[in-house]
Amino acid sequence: MFEAKFEDGGLFKKIVEAIKELVKNVNLEANGTGISLQAMDTSHVALVALQLNEKGFKKYRCEKSLTMGLSIENLQKILKCSGNDDQITLRTQDEEPTTLSFTFESKNRISEFQLNLMSLDQEQLGVPDTEYSSVVRMPSNEFTKICRELGNINEAIGIETSKEGIKFYVKGDIGEGQVSVKINDTEKPEERVECEVDEPVNLSFAVRYFNLFNKASALSSQVILSMSQDQPLVIEYIIEEMGSLKLYLAPKIND
């Protein structure tokens, strides 16, 4: 039997909201340590990796690891029947479940839904646990804003790191521009900008993926960008007390 209860069901809704435009069908994996998900977008350029640790749930039980194939669109239809302040419980009964049950619980209402599961044959990538040569932490809303602004000018965005900070730049048909974000150690942790640069990087990415990734900014006030030269970048949103959502994007490289 598998059972996982979110004290804050709104959080689960935010996670689904964050990934719904990146991936369509996903395998949700549950085992004794928690719930995880890994899925690529249809163009195989971006990858979503979610980890929710067992300790972050109000209640968690998983006797045998299981894989639940879900349509994100259908999952969202069911989640629309819950309130943002509801507690949400996910549950399966059988060893090889064909449905995933949802209980939405508020002060004055309990709702039950069953979502039909699918058998999905999905390519899983072995993402190495590497050290990155530049790691930048910055406010997630600031990153969202920069991507939106520069994305107007060109479809590719450049990222350059140095000991002084991080620079975003574009070159398009209409002209070019750059935005430098300075390091700061303000008392407000959500406004801090930190750069750990062992080796500076200079990379280019398709900004439209960043604009999709930025839907996850509702999960955390800070975003962590980890980069190495000519390698995929990872954008990480820490989900407080529960785990993290990591979004990988392959770079664009000079032909």
Binding site: V45, P128, S204, A250, K252, N254
Partner: peptide, 14 residues
Amino acid sequence: YLQQIPLSTFFPSR
């Protein structure tokens, strides 16, 4: 000209 590289170039299939 910038070319988009797929993720499978970097990460092996499991």
